[in-house]
Nucleic acid binder design. Structure first.
Lengths: 343, 343
DNA sequence: GCGTGCTTCTAGAACGTTCTAGTACCCGAG
DNA sequence: CTCGGGTACTAGAACGTTCTAGAAGCACGC
């Protein structure tokens, strides 16, 4: 059955059209559409039928314009960043469960953070959830003066008042990874770090702390790395060239780890038999069957849920203080780690 | 300097606030804000200054509500699909260049296509750009009755009236891939196919056609595959088990190709020395340094540009017929193909 | 007969913008 | 001095919704 193309002329159907069709007032149709109370079951049915007949669909702009609330949470994310797209997926679910909607605004090569945020503000989002924002603290403060802001996966030092931060316990994650390797009997554990990437300093510190705690201070070896596969590959080259090869490597993140893996494969060093490798993030990459990387998983679902909660509770009670939520990561054991060979 | 927190109470500043501040009428402020003509340079400056002072920001909802045009193109995409996110990136650029804006609506585990599209319709998008839509033809026809619709990367058979299709010449791509391998001296070229995935039939056909054309009809070997890395790995296992190993493999897509690669690595079959591998899509995966996959690139920028063009030209002149645009792919030679070893 | 209270419904004003149809003014031509 | 025609500006009505106030109807208790 064809979907009855709206009203006579090209316009989309409005409340008034439905009202005319059903022979009631506009206000009553509004009541029915919102599911508010104040309409008898009989008319309710009649109105709904009329709406269906002429293909009425509420206009969210008009709706938001009138009711001062938009119930819109603006999300800025990097469209090419798998970690961000994972988060977005969970944000949809989290927002829906508390009666809010998500407005997406991507950052891409052709679209700056500034543009992304401006567009969200123009849509009158009630709050901003920024994934890994690069904006300077001053800019964030400026935004925070306007509406509740939360920064996910980007630590702010010093904290910016009005901006709540949600991040993974990077140091704790690195410690867990080292603990895992040590429990497998490894002692020569190297770390390919993330340079100046967000979180890199914490992971480096976590690695050092754990090594010290296990009495392996003299085995600490930090190789300059980065957040791309290329960085990992280069670092692994350096590692092999150096001669004394460690029995395990903790990489800054999964991309870096896969880069290292590829170097090892090419050099016919078998993983995990000759060397164990641990990544960080539990990205899609790590889960690919031929990568099958042991890694520290960030609790993305939890982070998304926290982001929505923090922001909505500030909308409801505007005096809620901002702070920081640090989410614990957990180890996911896959195929790139195994017990150290004796000796 | 602090960003002067809007108007006395909590409200966001409106045209009326700016008007009051600058001592002019609301209509004039509107003129200045739109950059329309009808204001003297002097007042223009004064109004802009007032707007800046109280932190005015236009309300896009009200703006769209009043002017019948929204200049909004709704884009439905799979948030986890790298091919889609690549497209989105180019869509932003393409839309901007013709004065339209993009409204994103993601499909995810927790969000169905229906929800995604409903939200776009509620925002009163003027047209829909659907990336790889799964919706049945009837549903698409229903949407097409409402507004211009274009389906990217999803062939519709039979064509749905009102829905324009933009897709890659999959058969042509497979032929080019085979040509490349043949030109390198390969003759035993197998194809790991995509089963029932969109485009798979065309790529299979292109492979067969090319093999025939090169007089290699008796070397045709199609292995059941799929679109995941796992599918590729499994198919490669079968290939090796079968004994008579081909000298080259054309995989359905990059994910499938990397799956095959991993099996080959593990089985110590060196690529490309012993066997050449070609993927399809030129996804991010293919570009990773340790994958470095020769592949058929889809012309994403062109597809995005076409999507925007087709849809906007229908908005401007509603009688533009719908049809199909078939975009040529091109070969990207990387490290997984080389000349066949003699014999 | 008259208030009271409940349900069902409606008129009309908002929301922040753009657009239409003006008014007010100035300048030069007749 | 009036007319025409531009430029600078403004009042007020839209756009499609929600919300506030209140009206109409009805049953009930006195």
């Amino acid at each position: 059955m064809p979907p009855t193309p709206a009203v006579p002329d090209g316009r989309r159907a409005t409340l008034a059209d439905v009202a005319a069709q059903a022979g009631v007032s506009v206000a009553l149709v509004s009541i029915v559409m919102r599911g508010a109370k104040g309409a008898s079951p009989a008319t309710r049915e009649r109105v709904l039928e009329a709406a269906r007949a002429i293909g009425y669909r509420p206009d969210s702009r008009a709706r938001m314009l009138r009711s001062n609330r938009t119930h819109l949470l603006g999300v800025q994310f990097e469209i090419q960043e798998p970690f961000h797209t994972d988060l977005v997926e969970h944000l949809y679910a989290a927002a829906e469960s508390v009666g809010y909607q998500i407005a997406l605004s991507a950052v891409a090569a052709s679209r700056s953070e500034r543009q992304a945020v401006e567009s969200l503000l123009g849509d009158r989002c009630e709050a901003l959830i920024l994934l890994g924002p690069q904006a300077p603290a001053a800019r964030l403060a400026e935004l925070a003066a306007l509406l509740p802001v939360v920064s996910v996966a980007r630590r702010l030092r010093p904290p910016v008042p009005g901006v709540h931060v949600i991040r993974t316990a990077d140091d704790e994650g690195a410690r867990q990874a080292v603990d895992h390797l040590v429990s497998l009997g490894h002692r020569d554990i190297a770390h390919i770090d993330g340079g100046k990437a967000p979180g890199a300093a914490d992971r480096r510190r976590g690695y050092r702390t754990a090594m010290n705690r296990h009495g392996l201070a003299d085995r600490i070896r930090v190789l300059p790395g980065g957040l791309t596969a290329q960085d990992g590959a280069t670092a692994a080259d350096a590692l092999l060239a150096a001669g004394a090869r460690p029995s395990a490597v903790l990489a800054f993140n999964d991309a870096c780890a896969t880069g290292a893996l590829s170097t090892l494969f090419r050099s016919r060093v078998s993983v995990p038999e000759e060397i164990s490798v641990v990544g960080f993030d539990d990205s899609r990459l790590a889960r690919l069957p031929h990568v099958d990387l042991t890694t520290m998983a960030q609790d993305i679902a939890r982070m998304a849920e926290l982001a929505v909660t923090r922001v909505t509770e500030r909308l409801e009670a505007s005096d809620t203080p901002t702070g920081q939520d640090i989410v614990a990561p957990h180890l996911v054991i896959r195929g790139t780690t195994t017990a150290a060979t004796a000796g």
